[in-house]
Design a protein around this nucleic acid. Structure first.
Lengths: 240, 240
DNA sequence: GAGTGGTCTAGACCACGAA
DNA sequence: TCGTGGTCTAGACCACTCG
């Protein structure tokens, strides 16, 4: 647990305190935090100072304001995810690809998995292998790793009942909420196994998207490797 | 020229007004804009309102504050450029690759170039072909397009005197400052010509980075296509 | 020391959403 | 109608930069 640094400005200290309470699950995603005037009274600061603190939390993406309603703990949007830049011809942009889980195992964490999930060597992990499909066509292959201690409850449902989106499932079954993530994109010439899966000739380029997803306390919860044909990928960015 | 909408809050109107003055080159990149108290006096608003307006300009990346010194028109940093995610083994991160310009021509704009630069069909454009090198090894090939009306003065220097960075050259010789840019990343299997240039076997993956750079008035100034071996590319992003 | 941006306060009124 | 966040003001004092 990080402590609060007294030398920081009041609004920063207030920000850190609220952020810590969110991390400690005092308020879960979607919940309202106390109103600005309440916070001002509780912490004995001016309204403007509270607003400044919340401004920072908004900029950090931890919280969302809604005029007339309140301020709410935010879920990450994944609008910026690299996976959103895969264009599946025919399917419109908003479509969530179907999910078909091929495998669900428990095993001792391989070294790279243990490292990424901050687990001890040989700790038990869950491994999912799944395909994503649009209009019945395979558009992506994924390998997903989860620490078993937190995610064991996902074995209580059948493979076909996990839904097309995993994060709501994590929240519902395991009480684990994703708060942020980091993604890394690389490109490789596809190997024989993945080539067949994705309908490519060996050697054609695929994009590999690696994602490490964290909870509100910043601990890694999920590590994921996704592969898709590079021809479907077109990434756009603004520079200022 | 955009007009200012009276229905907007004061701080937004003030922001738009200052942004318009920057676009009109009242203050150039690196220059200080008037101090907060001056702006408050000029526009007859409270200091807090000026600060709010400048907060937005800072968030937009148009301007930079510096405590005790003033507020300055910002140059874009290109720290986020996709080109910064090419890893040239051996060369350390901060190194600017050397530039070797192979060609510098004037021609009628091909359709895609005209479209991207918002030029009339057949308007004259300058085309540069250049290589980027690290430690004498070719790491990237580039094709660069500029509207001749604005950039004709670059013909006043020799090919070897244009330096490793083009944007300072544009500013110095042509008075054209880059204020923002958009980049698009795609992947392709390399064709015969580019393969030889980049030292790849035909069919190996390359990343193609397309950049459209704009001035402070948002008009397109440069369109650029860069190609590099995909193996040197590793892109990282945070999601909240 | 003079001038800049940074923090903080106290209070007013507006715009919106929900009951 | 009430409570929420959004805008705006006026003023105080602090922290930093530079001559």
């Amino acid at each position: 647990m990080n402590t609060i640094d007294d030398r920081l400005p009041r609004y920063q200290r207030l920000r850190d305190q609220i952020a810590a309470e969110i991390a400690a699950n005092v308020w879960g995603p979607g919940d309202a935090i106390p109103s600005e005037s309440e916070l001002a009274a509780i912490h004995k600061v001016a309204l403007g100072t509270v607003r400044r603190a919340i401004d920072v939390l908004v900029a950090d993406g931890l919280v969302e304001r809604s005029q007339g309603r309140g301020t709410f703990v935010r879920r990450p949007s994944f609008d910026n995810s690299l996976l959103r830049f895969l264009r599946h011809h025919g399917g419109d942009q908003a479509t969530v690809p179907q999910s078909r889980i091929l495998q669900r195992d428990v095993m001792a964490a391989p070294p790279d998995v243990a490292r990424n999930l901050s687990l001890a060597q040989g700790a038990e992990v869950i491994r999912l292998v799944r395909l994503r499909l649009v209009d019945g066509h395979i558009v992506m292959g994924e390998e997903i790793w989860l620490p078993k201690v937190r995610f064991a409850p996902i074995f209580t449902v059948g493979l076909d009942d996990m839904g097309d989106l995993l994060y709501p499932t994590y929240e519902r079954l395991c009480g684990q909420s994703i708060a942020s993530a980091q993604e890394t994109l690389t490109v490789e010439a596809v190997g024989a196994e993945h080539a067949q899966l994705l309908g490519l000739k060996p050697g054609e380029p695929v994009v590999v998207i690696e994602r490490l997803a964290r909870g509100y306390d910043r601990h890694p919860l999920e590590w994921r490797l996704s592969r898709a044909p590079a021809a479907t990928f077109r990434y756009h960015i603004d520079i200022n």
